[in-house]
């Protein structure tokens, strides 16, 4: 991907050992499948929780979101989703952004965004659960 292989002296095996342009081989491909499988039941549960919370008072929402089972499902949903969307957006960036500096900045922004969304959501759920 980056740089020209004009003096390519490495054998194909040596290159494969380097696990390709991303240096992680098929790791992300596989993780995207794992998180998509996990995402099926978690998304169904997430939608059910949202529907159940519609129109309820703040006190009721706090109580339901803070109850252990709901909080655990929400934590699983958030963590799974954030990792899934981090890989997905990285894939989109690698497909369309070819300029090196812009690519670097965009990939970094993707990581910051996903960490921020994930951490903020997890913190909120934990605070609702522990009620500090």
């Amino acid at each position: 991907m980056s740089g020209k292989h004009t003096n390519e002296m490495r054998t194909p095996m040596r290159r494969v050992r380097g696990l390709g342009a991303a240096h992680t081989g098929t790791g992300h491909f596989w993780h995207q499948r794992v998180t998509s499988v996990a995402g099926i039941p978690l998304t169904i549960a997430f939608v059910a929780i949202i529907v159940a919370l519609l129109g309820r008072s703040h006190a009721a929402v706090v109580q339901i979101l803070g109850s252990p089972i709901v909080a655990i499902i929400m934590l699983l949903f958030i963590i799974n989703t954030v990792y899934h969307m981090w890989i997905g957006m990285q894939e989109i960036v690698l497909d369309y952004v070819h300029e090196d500096k812009l690519k670097l900045v965009t990939l970094m922004a993707n990581t910051f965004f996903c960490f921020a969304i994930g951490l903020a959501s997890v913190f909120a759920i934990l605070k609702l659960s522990f009620g500090v």
């Binding site: 979101l65 959501s121 759920i125 605070k127």
Partner: peptide, 19 residues
């Protein structure tokens, strides 16, 4: 997928607001 990526902002906002 990309739309949901940014849609998660609303979910995070909702959770933070509830907390």
């Amino acid at each position: 997928g990309a739309a949901l990526y940014f849609g998660m902002l609303v979910i995070a906002w909702w959770l933070i607001a509830a907390a």
